[in-house]
Design a protein around this nucleic acid. Structure first.
Length: 464
RNA sequence: UCCGGCGUAGCUCAGCGGUAGAGUAGGUGGCUGUUAACCACUUGGUCGUAGGUUCGAAUCCUACCGCCGGAGCCA
């Protein structure tokens, strides 16, 4: 690499040593004392490098004075301690080479604050801001920490399909994938679209969950996880939903719900620890800008156990809370956002793992408990963000699962491969799905999920 | 999809029936080892779109579009 990262340069103290960097100008301040200051950022860290460019440079008048925010340059120079406040060192330029100028009247990222709403309209430029730089580094660290956690615990990374024929997974509306001419598709004699003529010879969609596929590998290889894109065609317009998001789905064999909850907690704890160790200055930035309690909360969660309660206990706690809710709490009803908010933000003041939900409000594949009315399900709830993990022990008894599917109006014949896992050497197993963007939200304090993914996909919006 | 709020200069916003404003960014000049630099002057707008009410609409009404917040769906 021809250029040294600014993050590395900022750690140096060898005054007089040479350095060569490249990056984008954040601001320029001119001094008639015979030089200009350039704040240079290359994305390697939050901090900028202060470059001192003297009028003696051959291109000072012709080029340096035309470096507005957004311009790209390479700078060669000599490291020196900085006499000014605000930075320890500076690079005294011996040459400034311009890659590209940046027209200030046209470039939307000038020095002042730009709102998140405006930044969403310039998704191709917002990675150049402090906020998106910090978010991107945190997102990267959380992704790598995900792999390190599972790899260190002997999980296999399994790639489940993006295109799926599982047309009744029940996790939400799906995007259809087809090569047929949608304006004039082939039709069967009865007028219905003839999907036998489609690319896969059947109707297929983008996946809403890798879980069913993941179970096949857990029930062969023991411990697996997936980490990939997931798609929901719901018309959701909230700060917590995306049509395309990334989900982490571990699946473990020979495990029950308690093992599943313990895994979720250990995983989250590892993520928080890694983040605190590796992204300190980015976290400090978000703490200063968005949430004064951010780092303290992560530090607590990196060591403290999460509060656990059964759904039945949660309902009892809500009913005796003295709070008036818009939706009255009753055993059997799903917990509303206001209820989850009370549990996490008032009762626990932190994450809560709620287990053993009523069978009727949960998915068909969740294992039925001995009480006959609940299933071995769990949700991990976070303050502000809401549900970040949904998981369960899977129903491993063939007859019980088939009966449950019929009860849900599903045709077991369409799931024969899934039922084979129970037919041939069935084992107790469990798993969960973690919404990666909601995790990034929680770890940055960014209120809107559209600001924690590079290119958000939401109803009516797929620009860039 | 439902409920509510908001669309005015590149950006952040004020104006809420009577000739379109401020800060900031940009330009010019001054000053300065500066750092949200500072001081003076200055460029910049079909007030989201289309109708309507009115002598007169950025301002009131209607519809549509977009954005934001809440709800539902969930991760």
């Amino acid at each position: 690499m021809q250029y040294e990262l600014i993050r590395k340069v900022l750690e140096r103290r060898d005054w007089g040593g040479a350095a060569r960097v490249a990056g984008w100008v954040r601001t320029r301040r001119d001094s008639k004392g015979g030089f200009s200051f350039l704040e240079l950022n290359d994305g390697s860290c939050l901090a900028n490098l202060q470059v001192v460019a003297e009028t003696a440079l051959a291109n000072y008048q012709t080029e340096v004075l035309k470096l507005f925010p957004g311009s790209s340059v390479a700078v060669e120079g000599v490291l020196a301690p900085s006499p000014g406040a605000g930075q320890l060192l500076e690079l005294r330029a011996t040459s400034v080479t311009v890659f590209g100028f940046c027209e200030p009247t046209a470039y939307p990222l000038q020095k002042g604050r730009v709102s998140f709403e405006v930044l969403r309209e310039i998704g191709h430029l917002r990675p150049r801001t402090n906020t998106f730089g910090a978010m991107s580094r945190i997102r990267n660290t959380l992704a790598m920490a995900t792999h390190s956690f599972f790899q260190e615990h002997d999980f296999l990374y399994v790639h489940t399909p993006i295109i799926t024929g599982n047309d009744c997974e029940g996790a939400g509306a799906m995007f259809q994938v087809t090569t047929l001419d949608v304006g004039n598709p082939p039709r069967r004699p009865d007028g219905a679209v003839d999907y036998a003529a489609d690319f896969f010879g059947r109707r297929v969609n983008l996946t809403v969950s890798g879980q069913l596929n993941g179970e096949t590998h857990a029930c062969a290889l023991g411990r697996i996880y997936t980490f990939g894109p997931t798609f929901r065609a719901e018309n959701s317009n909230t700060r917590r939903h995306l049509a395309e998001f990334w989900m982490i789905e571990p699946e473990i064999a020979f495990a029950d719900l308690a093992d599943d909850a313990a895994l979720a907690e250990a995983f989250l704890r590892h993520l928080f620890q890694q983040l605190l160790a590796r992204c300190r200055s980015d976290l400090e930035f978000f703490q200063k800008q968005l949430d004064p309690a951010l780092i303290g909360r992560l530090e607590t969660l990196a060591v403290a156990p999460f509060l656990r309660m059964s759904y039945t206990e949660a309902v009892a706690a809500l009913r005796s809370s003295g709070q008036t809710f818009e939706f009255p709490v009753q055993w059997g009803c799903d917990l509303q956002a206001e209820h989850e908010k009370y549990l996490t933000e008032v009762l626990a003041k932190g994450p809560v793992i709620v287990t053993d939900y009523p069978r009727e409000i949960k998915a068909f594949y969740m294992r039925q408990n001995a009480d006959g009315r609940t299933v071995a399900a769990m949700d991990v709830l976070l303050p502000e963000v809401g549900e970040i993990i949904g998981g369960s022990q899977r129903e491993d008894r063939l007859d019980v699962l088939e009966a449950r599917m019929r009860g849900c109006g599903l045709n077991p014949e369409l799931y024969s491969w899934y039922l084979d896992l129970r037919r041939f050497g069935s084992v107790p197993h469990a798993g969960f799905g973690l919404g990666f963007e909601r995790l990034v939200q929680f770890c940055t304090g960014l209120a809107n999920i559209r600001d924690v993914i590079p290119f958000p996909r939401t109803p009516g919006n797929a620009a860039f």
